[in-house]
Design a protein around this nucleic acid. Structure first.
Lengths: 206, 206
DNA sequence: TGATTTTCAGAACCTACAGTCTGCAAATGG
DNA sequence: CCATTTGCAGACTGTAGGTTCTGAAAATCA
């Protein structure tokens, strides 16, 4: 919980023995381990090793495994998802922005064969089945993307083909993205997924 | 592995003590437990209790937990997915068939709050991250749905709006379905998801 | 230097897990 | 009625899980 902000280095070294791990890289490693192996599949020992962070420090920083996972999800959002969401814009035309969005999403889901798909749609979604905290987190993240897409559609409503409800269209566009992420988990051809993204955009704009 | 066929009752009771569980219901219970709690989240003791099947019989029938999970996935496919796939038809117009497909999918993913989403897209997808057997199973199931949708699009190609590649369109339609299932895992409004299905169909046909 | 603070390494703890074994129960066949 | 077959309940096993603890290590401060 009290993981020091990796961006703001303290002006003067604090007292006590200095830590031997990099907070930012540690969280990033946790993201990769959870992403590849799932929540239950990733043991704390495995995480501790991957993060190069002693178990004692890990528990002091995050409380428990659940806290670590939630922190990893946030880090994943900040480092992986924010760029994808930013592609939505508005940056250029609606068509171009949505293409950029899908392109970024597909790249994310197929970048590393060790971490296929999306941490949110594939891993968080599974454990959301019974854990209410995880389910709330999942719902919030899903709603946030849909809201963002909805705003973008409203901003470019003149470029939308047809007369579908923009709110429904937003959920549909988000569903395509998530479906592609899940598809990538089984090892899908990246070019095929990119084509799916373009085809989707072509259906609703231009 | 040697689970007796629940459909073909043996003509004469075999020797030995008769089993005290219903094979069909046992597998169905396993489906629900895995569906709700995930693969790692469902312990064998929990499964044994839910299935009303002694652990010894369970191991004799399925070998190990992995075998039980795969059997549950197959049972889920036979009992839950086959009807959804059959809705694709061809039964009526392309538009109506696809609407029926999404309607059945959404009903499946939102029928029971204890088992939100889809066993394949939410649970099998997670464990497919590291387990090659599970990943192969996931890939096969995904490809099967896409192939079926592709065939349906080819059969009704005159009803398709636009000039998208039917193969790409098929993957896109499947992605929407999977994305909606994952969305349902966070507890989505059923009517909203139904609207998403209709909107998707309206984009490509009519 | 010594007191203090923080981190670290790894042992220790208890629980829960997947999987096995043993002995009894309940049926059939002769 | 006894042998045989099959299934069952639950104890058992060994391992791995998450979490805590202890004492040493490494830094600062006075």
């Amino acid at each position: 919980m009290s993981m020091p902000d990796p961006d703001r280095t303290p002006p003067r070294r604090s007292r006590g023995r200095p830590r031997g791990f990099e907070p930012h890289e540690a969280l990033d490693a946790a993201v990769r381990v959870f992403w590849a192996e799932g929540y239950e599949g990733a043991s704390v020992n495995r995480l501790s090793r991957g993060m190069r962070m002693p178990k004692a420090s890990l528990y002091q920083a995050f409380g428990d495994k659940e806290g670590l996972f939630l922190a990893a999800v946030h880090h994943y959002g900040d480092t992986r998802l924010v760029p994808v969401a930013q592609a939505i814009g508005p940056n250029g035309s609606l068509h171009d922005d949505l293409c950029a969005f899908y392109e970024a999403a597909v790249r994310l889901g197929t970048a590393d064969p060790a971490t296929p798909g999306c941490l949110i749609s594939c891993v968080l979604a599974e454990v959301a089945g019974t854990n209410p905290r995880f389910r709330a987190e999942l719902g919030a993240r899903f709603t946030a993307l849909e809201t963002r897409l909805h705003s973008r559609l409203l901003a470019g409503r003149s470029e939308v083909i047809g007369d579908s409800d923009p709110a429904v269209l937003a959920v549909m566009l988000a569903s395509v993205a998530r479906g592609m992420m899940v598809r990538a988990r089984a090892g899908a051809d990246r070019d095929m997924l990119q084509a799916v993204g373009r085809a989707t955009v072509d259906l609703i704009s231009r």
